[in-house]
Amino acid sequence: MTFSQQELAEPDLSKSEPDLSDETGGRRIVRRGSWKFWVGIAICALFAIIAALGPLLAPNPNQTNSDGLQAPSLQHLLGTTNIGQDVLTQVIAGTTGSVIIGVVAGALTVVLSMIFGVGGAFLGGKWDEASSLLSNVFLVIPGLPLLIIVTDYVQSRDILVIAVVISLVSWAGAARVLRAQTLSVRSRDYVDAARVASESTWRIMLREILPNLMPIIASQFVFGALGAILAEAGLSFLGLGAPGGRSWGSILFFAQNAQAISLGAWWWFVPPGLCIAVLGAALGLINFSIDEQINPRLRTLAVLRPKAKRGGK
């Protein structure tokens, strides 16, 4: 066990000089480090634009031609697949699929977790116990196997159905987080003050509690979207994706099936893999920066002049 006075001192430093965050530019410290946010947003926006324009840029991704397994060239910027499909077109079409899945699953995760997390915690009593029980049950169900079973079971494996299934198995974690935060916000004085002012329950929920949950809801959305994109890629890679649908995962699946790696056709599997990694990283960056805003402990204070202490050495 180590027990240093440093540890004793630290919890107090924030409290001992509360004025620092007032007037004097303390507020600007908070905004620092948000480059993560903007980089993340920029990358996501880029992918969103590609996804939106996907049908125009790549109207017919399955079109084949005679040149199978061509390395990148001017004609096919990212080469072709074994049956002569243009990889770039495929990746663009896949972007549309993956982004739709991310957005739909993320949104659905938020909706479900708000119903069971925020709703339960706000109403309290039996509601809270019931919704906690439900989210706990969903939390311990192993996600991937359930996903495999459900996707195997549903008749129409549409891309939207996949998104719904993914969010069904993954909302519980978000619900737990939101529940905890709602309980904390609900017990704050200004909520009591609103009750003393005789505000209606709905208004308290919408005006007093929800705004203070927004950062967490946003972060859960981002987290849900990220998880869904990865999960879908995994499912598709295992061949359980939407058969007609296009996503980065399904490109990887076909590449794997055609033994692209042993054939050395890197242009076939690197671009979709990279897309997954880059979008994942961008969503992660957004999440980190939201986290930093919520949790002051993660904020790194900017030191303008890290000048050595006088007489330091």
């Binding site: 004085d189 200004y190 003050a193």
Partner: peptide, 16 residues
């Protein structure tokens, strides 16, 4: 019957 709370830092909603 109205009430004034202890902590003015937490009894006013920061978002309003």
């Amino acid at each position: 019957v109205q009430m004034v709370f202890q902590d003015p830092f937490s009894s006013l909603n920061p978002a309003l």
